[in-house]
């Protein structure tokens, strides 16, 4: 599974530009699902039909979702000297940019720079004072490589630190990897399962709005990365790396439906795997908009504890990942009832 994770996190896919990630996922799952379609916004919606139950009862429609997009930048202006000004895509922290590189869909690479670098040590950098340097001497040569509106993502390779995995875009390719692994692992399936790989989560959970409307699930679970409270002087939060997948109770966007939370907790207990309950000050996830779809969809979240979220080096624990796969597989292999 690590090899799959490495390929996913290294793929390019800032919000609105998820094509490469989608192609990769499509390739991975196509042999294992009954249908897969791409909707108007670019969400990949794959259906695994339920095994016949012999009694003709309509199967429960379960939606599990992870988002394909990652944070990044979008070019807003190319100046006469060939430097690129940009706006953030998603929640970008300026501090994480300096010294880092960004790459465009066509492979063009650049590094971040800042006006008046000499005052850096005393001042927090602001995005409007930063630019991307793609090595071009003037506007004309820059325009041959990129145009206004092009998006770039962090460029950073996958690495391991002990049992922990380090990469950019762990949020939420780790969710994508888990879903793919679940698709491949499922032995039986009493439910209609919609595996949905959404777009544009980082800019407002947009893909989940339209895909949930299309799928009309009876119950929905998002799989996403969450912050932790286990680093020196971090915020007081109960989630720790390596102590199991987190089952969301609440974040800034939603209260997880108690029935979904119970379903997940009971599955974890039944398996005897570690889990943690999560109350996050930040947020949201795709589940926020899934629950408001149509007449309402009971929704919950399986969160993967992740340090340094929205930086080029997000860290997850491999055991949390494999336990999340077990947890979701268990939930989906039983008939889901609300």
């Amino acid at each position: 599974m690590k090899e799959l994770i490495a390929r996913l996190v290294e793929a390019y896919g800032p919000s609105g530009n998820e094509e490469q990630v989608r192609a990769l996922i499509q390739d991975e799952i196509k042999a294992h699902v009954d249908e897969a379609r791409v909707d108007a916004l670019g969400n990949l919606v794959a259906l695994l039909k339920s095994d016949p139950d012999g009694q003709g009862k309509p199967p429960t429609r379960v939606m599990v979702a992870a988002h394909m997009d990652e944070i990044g930048i979008i070019v807003t202006h190319i100046d006469e000297k060939g430097f690129l000004r940009f706006a953030p895509i998603g929640g970008l922290t300026p501090l994480t940019l300096l010294g880092n590189r960004a790459v465009f869909a066509n492979g063009v690479m650049g590094t971040f720079g800042m006006e008046k670098r000499e005052i850096l040590p005393t001042e927090k950098p602001k995005l409007d004072r930063m630019f991307l340097d793609i090595g071009t001497p003037d506007k004309e040569s820059a325009l041959k490589l990129v145009s206004v509106g092009d998006a770039a993502a962090f460029s950073r390779g996958f690495a391991q630190a002990g049992n922990r995995l380090l990469a950019k875009a762990m949020d939420d390719r780790i969710g994508c990897a888990i879903l793919i692994q679940v698709v491949k692992t499922l032995k039986k399936n009493p439910n209609d399962i919609y595996f949905v790989f959404t777009v544009q989560e980082e800019v407002g959970c947009r893909g989940a709005v339209t895909s949930t409307y299309g799928v009309q699930p009876d119950l929905a679970i998002a799989v996403d990365a969450t912050d932790t409270g286990d680093t020196p002087e971090s915020r007081p939060m109960n989630v720790t790396l390596g102590k199991g997948p987190a089952i969301k109770v609440k974040d800034a966007g939603m209260l997880a439906h108690p029935a979904v939370r119970r379903l997940l907790v009971e599955a974890a207990k039944g398996l005897g795997i570690p889990y943690q309950l999560e109350v996050l000050e930040g947020g949201p996830t795709d589940a926020m908009v899934m629950q408001t779809s149509r007449e309402g969809v009971p929704s919950g979240v399986v969160s993967i504890p992740c340090r340094y979220v929205h930086s080029p080096s997000e860290m997850v624990d491999y055991d949390d990942v494999t336990n999340a796969v077990k947890l979701l597989t268990k939930v989906l292999e039983d008939r889901v009832a609300i």
Partner: peptide, 18 residues
């Protein structure tokens, strides 16, 4: 210039299935 302002397209593109 990208990422400036918002328009009706912001809601239209999310209507129903997109």
């Amino acid at each position: 210039q990208p990422m400036v302002g918002a328009t009706d397209a912001g809601r239209i593109h999310l209507a129903r299935e997109g």
